[in-house]
């Protein structure tokens, strides 16, 4: 994987991502087959497809959690400055990681820590400043302010999912990867997620959201891509209309 960029680094500059003939193999199973996809900064991509289509694998590769078996992944945009410079050759990797947020299948939180302790721990790992206020704001925003000291294991599925989304947004990522983020959310939670994603889209954050089922946040998508058995079956394109693909998903739901 690599990162390219020339402008001054900034935490608020957009990030895009480009997959070039990416394949991922697990033993004899080919989960991704020569996937080529160029996602511009600021796009909101709905990644559609049935279970086992390769959506999660693609997102995990984008999150730097997994290396592709073959092919190339490049981060694009000005946000990844410092590339090729500095004594620390991990600087570009860490720079990319600071700009990526992910909501995965699991909540990526510690059950035996409280909501505030979880967010504080990750805020420290990301080297954020003003952690107390940042954590308090994040908890208020996701509606968990009154349960800040509650252990995550005592939370309902929906509360855990909201906290998981809050964790992913804590460091203000410019590339947000969402793997079935609506799972377990009630109407209130879905509304909060929808308004949060709308704000992020308007702010220029690149969002890739995978789903195999319909949810209201899909209406925010500026592009729809469907994967079937590890291959791109349909792509509305960066300048195309995602609505026919999204309507087809609704039809199947």
């Amino acid at each position: 994987m690599s990162a390219r960029g020339t402008s001054t680094p900034s935490g608020h500059q957009p990030v895009g991502i480009s997959f070039d003939r990416v394949e991922k193999r697990f033993g004899s199973l080919l989960a991704l087959r020569k996937v080529s996809l160029d996602i511009r900064s600021g796009e909101f991509v709905a990644l559609l497809g049935p279970n086992g289509a390769g959506k999660s694998t693609l997102l995990r590769i984008a999150a730097l959690l997994m290396n592709p078996s073959s092919g190339k992944v490049e981060f694009t945009g000005a946000a990844l400055g410092e590339v090729g410079g500095g004594a620390d050759d991990k600087a570009p990797l860490f720079s990319a990681k600071r700009r990526i947020g992910m909501v995965g299948h699991s909540i990526l939180l510690y059950d035996e820590l409280s909501a505030a302790e979880n967010l504080t721990f990750f805020a420290k790992l990301y080297g954020l400043d003003d952690i107390g206020a940042r954590v308090a704001n994040a908890l208020e925003a996701c509606g968990l302010g009154p349960r800040a000291r509650g252990l995550v294991r005592t939370f309902s599925r929906g509360m855990r999912q909201r906290l998981s989304i809050a964790r992913a947004l804590l460091h203000e990522p410019r590339l947000l990867l969402l793997d079935e983020p609506a799972a377990g959310l009630d109407r209130q939670g879905l509304a909060w997620m929808g308004s949060t994603l709308a704000r992020l889209r308007d702010d220029g954050c690149t969002v890739i959201m995978s789903t195999h089922a319909r949810n209201e946040s899909l209406d925010l998508a500026t592009r729809a891509v469907s994967l079937v058995t590890g291959q791109i079956a349909h792509d509305s394109g960066s300048d195309g209309d995602p609505r026919p693909l999204l309507a087809a998903l609704r039809g199947e739901a």
């Binding site: 959690l65 699991s106 510690y110």
Partner: peptide, 15 residues
């Protein structure tokens, strides 16, 4: 492995 928190650690910008 519980809740895949190792993934969260690996995504953080730390060695």
């Amino acid at each position: 492995r519980l809740n895949d928190t190792l993934d969260a650690l690996r995504m953080a910008p730390v060695s």
